[in-house]
Amino acid sequence: MRKIQSSEVKARLPQILDEVERGETVIITRHGRPIARIVPEVDNRAAEIRKTMDRIAAFRQTMPRLSVEEILSARHEGHNY
């Protein structure tokens, strides 16, 4: 979440809307006091998160199953202690 002066919003509205579309919340201030908040559309954001989680789940199905020992072994592989 970031704050921006109301006078700056006029000049940078397209960039601010791009940030909000990417999920950032922007607080607009006047004389240092918050006067408004621009937040991402909840429905679009929730759908995007669901789609991403589905893609991650599908990707995980393509990966080989590894035991904890294999993961720990790979973590230290190539280290010089």
Rank of each mutant, 00 (worst) to 15 (best):
M1C: 00
R2E: 12
I4A: 04
I4F: 03
Q5W: 02
Q5N: 10
S6R: 12
S7C: 00
E8Q: 14
E8K: 13
A11E: 11
A11C: 00
R12S: 12
R12Y: 09
P14M: 05
Q15S: 10
L17I: 06
L17F: 07
E19L: 06
V20F: 00
V20T: 03
E21R: 10
G23W: 04
E24P: 04
T25D: 04
T25F: 00
V26M: 02
I27M: 12
I28S: 01
R30D: 05
R30H: 07
G32F: 06
G32S: 09
R33G: 06
P34S: 14
I35F: 09
A36C: 08
A36E: 11
A36F: 08
A36P: 06
A36T: 10
R37I: 12
I38G: 02
V39I: 12
P40Y: 00
E41S: 07
E41D: 15
V42N: 07
V42A: 14
V42T: 13
D43K: 15
N44D: 04
N44W: 04
N44L: 11
R45H: 08
A46K: 13
A47Q: 13
A47H: 10
E48Q: 10
E48Y: 01
E48G: 05
I49S: 07
R50A: 14
R50M: 08
M53H: 05
D54A: 13
D54Q: 08
R55M: 08
R55Y: 02
I56F: 02
I56K: 05
I56W: 00
A57F: 04
A58M: 01
A58P: 01
A58D: 03
A58E: 00
A58F: 03
F59S: 02
F59D: 01
M63G: 03
M63L: 10
P64I: 00
R65D: 14
R65T: 10
S67E: 02
V68W: 09
V68Q: 14
E69G: 14
E69K: 15
E70T: 05
L72M: 15
L72S: 14
A74F: 06
R75D: 07
H76A: 15
H76M: 15
E77N: 11
N80G: 10
N80K: 13
Y81C: 11
